[in-house]
Design a protein around this nucleic acid. Structure first.
Lengths: 164, 164
DNA sequence: TAGCGTAGTAGATTGCAAGTCACTAGTCAC
DNA sequence: GTGACTAGTGACTTGCAATCTACTACGCTA
């Protein structure tokens, strides 16, 4: 209650939790969030899904990201093995950034999230940027697909593999 | 926080970047991230996927979340129509929180993300909770599916409908 | 050798998310 | 009517993330 032990002095600095949120990392979702759970990372991954890009491509393409944040996110994603840098020029060492296999594995999740975001753009506004089937115009939905059986699979036909 | 009286797009609300990250909200993924793009929201959604829960269940279940943050996240998600509160007791008004249909639509994305997070838990730790096809054991991937044509659709066969 | 373009790096500043902790409100058991 | 329990609310503090604005380093071109 003693609000004024100290005067409202200019606070030092500010930020987010930074703290990995203790329990978060103990769940698989928390672990994923630890790795790519900030907006820029996911946006970066989405961008890179289209193919490798250079620093300035990303800077311009993502729109709004500051160069140092981009550097930071790129380094972080490299550390997490989501992105890797490949030189496209040696003499002035120039890097191009691309997704690793792990990064590509995020494609479905990113796509699904984007789909959800696009589906209910604002308040009750219905579709706005719905992905439709080119051939028939039907709005698409995401389904599980089995690459081996080459068909989509209902939720009931799936099993979670908790072993190993 | 009445966000958008005048602003064309929701300012920040979602949380993370302080500044709306201009371009973020203009893409479907950015829109999704604006709504549920912080760790607690997604963790909350994941929890609620198991069924409705009370405040204290969530508080204990999510582990590490502060009560005021939980309140805030719950309000935010209600505003976003991802979660709704239903009274389970009238006299002392007590609420239970459940996902809306919209919230349930996030299930696949959350699952996929969790799957990805679980797959490479730490440094190189392998699978952990992969969703597999019951019949053949193949790890599943998400694909677009056309309910009319009753088949899954490749990325190239899709069209975005920006017209409303 | 000056100027330009590309690819970053660095420093200062800000501001909101998240954390801590105390406190309220309503009901129920005794 | 006192205490315990459930379900939150609110004040205050902290601190990193994100921002803005330079600035460096390198090669190329004229």
């Amino acid at each position: 209650m003693n609000a004024n032990d100290t005067l409202p002095e200019p606070p030092t600095m500010a930020g987010m939790p930074a703290r990995p949120a203790p329990a978060a990392s103990s769940s698989p979702l928390g672990a994923a969030l630890d790795r790519v759970g900030d907006r820029w990372s996911l946006l970066l991954v989405e961008r890179l899904l289209d193919g490798p890009a250079r620093f300035n491509d990303l800077l311009a393409g993502i729109g709004g990201i500051a160069p140092n944040i981009l550097t930071d996110r790129l380094r972080r994603l490299e550390r997490e093995r989501v992105v890797h840098a490949v030189p496209y020029s040696d003499r002035p060492l120039r890097m191009e950034y691309a997704l690793t296999a792990d990064g590509r594995d995020l494609a479905s999740a990113v796509r699904l999230l984007a789909d959800w975001g696009g589906r209910r753009a604002a308040d009750g506004e219905p579709a706005h940027e719905t992905l439709r089937h080119d051939a028939c115009g039907t709005p698409l939905e995401a389904r599980w697909y089995c690459p081996t059986c080459e068909r989509s699979v209902a939720d009931g036909e799936t099993a979670e593999d908790r072993q190993v």
